[in-house]
Computed example of a mutant assay.
Amino acid sequence: MIKVLKPGFYTSVQDAGRTGYRDMGVPVSGAMDLFSATLANRLLNNDDNAAVLETTMTGPDLEFTEPTHIVVTGAEMQPAVNDAKIPYNRVIKINSGDVLSFGKLQRGFRAYLGIKDGFKTEKVLGSRSLYIPVTQTARIVEGNTLPYQPYEGDIENLIEIKIDNEFLFDTHIEVFPGPEYELLPEADKERIRTATFTVSPQNNRMAYQLKEQLLPNDFGIITSATLPGTVQLTPSGKMIVLMKDCQTTGGYPRILQLTEKSVSVLGQKKVGDTIDIRLRG
């Protein structure tokens, strides 16, 4: 198992998400940057849905009590084993008693720790993703233990494979027109196509708000289905991008829909980072 010595700012167990329960109001949850979580699992020859640790802004200190293999992907947080820096996107062998730590955030916002065969925490409604009130906690805390299956075998050496994840740190966000996109006046459509938008301090796993606003409006719709990546427009003109822990329905117009790839890109953005919207379709 892993002993949590320090939990980091916000570290949680996540997998590909909780599906099949949206009709009961249960969010999908899962990794904010699904690309990086999946990459970690594939490098370890895991199932894509194996549980990983998602770390936000600052990483945890973790002690391993059994041998295994790990991979760190996503944001660059200077990971180290026993104070010796380790590379990103590479399989690292872990021995009993080894301690994984993280340094200063250099790029991105969320890093992912994959472990051979995935973390074996409790499944609730078919997923290990932490989300209150479905699970008892939303994040790990100091003193927690995280179970995993010890592994002493060998994993195929993939060190020569070049992995291109630079798109995660780009500013481009690809979107499709949402169901209510045509309600927008031409001035707002032009602003979406040409303006630069800034991540506001109001951002978390539920939603990202953008600092710059569109025109005030009196649009009204019947409460309708929403998804991670749905961009809602409030009457004041504020744009809210729903993320992995978002509600399943909403009453604000759905003006845009991010691609899954762009949800990963936005999940690597922090307060003050800028994005530009690229409309498709």
Rank of each mutant, 00 (worst) to 15 (best):
G114E: 04
K162E: 14
E152H: 05
F197C: 04
N82R: 08
Y148D: 09
P179A: 06
A75V: 04
H172E: 12
R191F: 03
Y148I: 06
A75W: 03
K116V: 07
N95E: 14
P147I: 06
D170K: 15
V134T: 14
I132G: 00
I92G: 07
I86M: 07
I161W: 00
Y112R: 08
I163M: 10
I132W: 00
I70L: 11
T194R: 09
R107G: 05
I115H: 04
I192S: 07
L130S: 09
I159L: 07
S96G: 13
R139Y: 11
I161T: 09
T194S: 10
Y148W: 05
T196S: 11
F102D: 09
Y181I: 12
F169I: 04
G143R: 07
I155N: 10
L183T: 14
D164A: 10
A195V: 00
Q106K: 15
L125P: 02
E122N: 14
V134H: 12
I94E: 08
E190M: 14
G114V: 04
V141S: 13
I140Q: 06
F197P: 02
E142I: 12
R128E: 13
Q78D: 10
D188A: 09
D98P: 11
I140Y: 03
Y148A: 08
E174P: 00
I132H: 08
N89L: 11
P201F: 01
A75F: 03
T198C: 05
A195G: 02
F102N: 09
I140W: 06
L168I: 03
S200V: 01
Y131Q: 12
L125E: 01
V91P: 11
D188P: 03
D164Y: 09
N204F: 02
P177T: 15
E180W: 03
I159N: 13
K93G: 13
A138M: 10
E160I: 04
E160T: 11
D170R: 14
S129Q: 01
A80T: 08
R205I: 02
Q149F: 08
Q78N: 12
K120A: 13
R193G: 00
I163Y: 14
L168Q: 04
Y148C: 09
G126Q: 08
E160C: 03
V199H: 01
N204I: 05
V72K: 00
K120P: 10
N165A: 11
N89K: 15
A84L: 12
G97I: 11
K93A: 15
G143M: 03
K85F: 06
L113C: 03
Q136C: 08
R128V: 07
R205T: 01
L183Y: 14
E174I: 00
Y131T: 06
V199A: 01
Y181C: 10
N144W: 13
